[in-house]
Design a protein around this nucleic acid. Structure first.
Lengths: 121, 121
DNA sequence: TGTAAATTACGCACTATTCTGTAACCAGGG
DNA sequence: CCCTGGTTACAGAATAGTGCGTAATTTACA
């Protein structure tokens, strides 16, 4: 039941970047060109199938470029498009944010009472 | 089957921000304090159950603060914590990135051939 | 004055949809 | 047989939505 139009760029961007793998793949691809098997080694927990699907999704979104070399054994390279390259610093910033705000986010509900109870006026 | 430790801040950050709603809620909360019903109005497609769950998740992550006012009718306010406020510019940047790279991302596979075929050397 | 209904922020149970993973199979040369 | 990159079929897990119930007070209305 996906809405027809979102009109919100954030929502559209997240439609591509949401999930566990997209940002990680971007992270590994920023080092340069990688092959399918390289990416599997970089992240051994992703299944064969999901890696292929995620890469397709990123390719269709114009973030990753796929280059298939003719001949056998099969060989396919993946690297970032211009859009993908521009995205890298944002993802890095996200990681920095997570680390920088570690003390601020604290222990959630347990230690610091996040939820406050206020008397009605 | 979530792995025990990720050690990667990007992965951890995405564990919280992944999905359709978290970034949108952050986006609406940046205007200031909102109530549950305000957020439902801002985004009518989210169900009340999911909204409650997502807000709890963000609260536990230390990004959103929940303030329950005693008395009836029930009243609960939500606003951003310091960590949440620091995250806002990043989310905005993500939206900008999506818009700025629109031409670059092009039409995906259909028009521009994203997948290249290269002869073996 | 009595009673019914609305309000707000959920929780719970159930269903529907989507995501993720496993296993098997394909291609053609070594 | 193996290697590579990828697809399909199927199974199970995670996620999302619907509808009902609940609390104490206020308002609606005969």
């Amino acid at each position: 039941m996906k809405d027809v139009i979102s009109s919100c760029p954030i929502e559209e961007a997240m439609r591509v970047l949401s999930g566990r793998w997209p940002t990680l793949l971007l992270y590994y691809l920023k080092d340069g060109t990688k092959r399918f098997s390289d990416l599997r080694r970089d992240n051994p927990t992703v299944s064969h199938r999901i890696l292929a699907l995620e890469l397709r999704k990123l390719e269709e979104a114009g973030i990753v470029r796929r280059t298939a070399h003719a001949g056998y054994p099969l060989r396919v390279d993946y690297d970032l498009t211009a859009a993908g390259l521009k995205l890298v610093p944002l993802i890095d910033a996200l990681g920095d944010w997570w680390e920088d705000t570690e003390d601020d986010r604290a222990g959630g509900v347990s230690s610091t009472a996040e939820t406050r109870l206020v008397a009605a006026e």
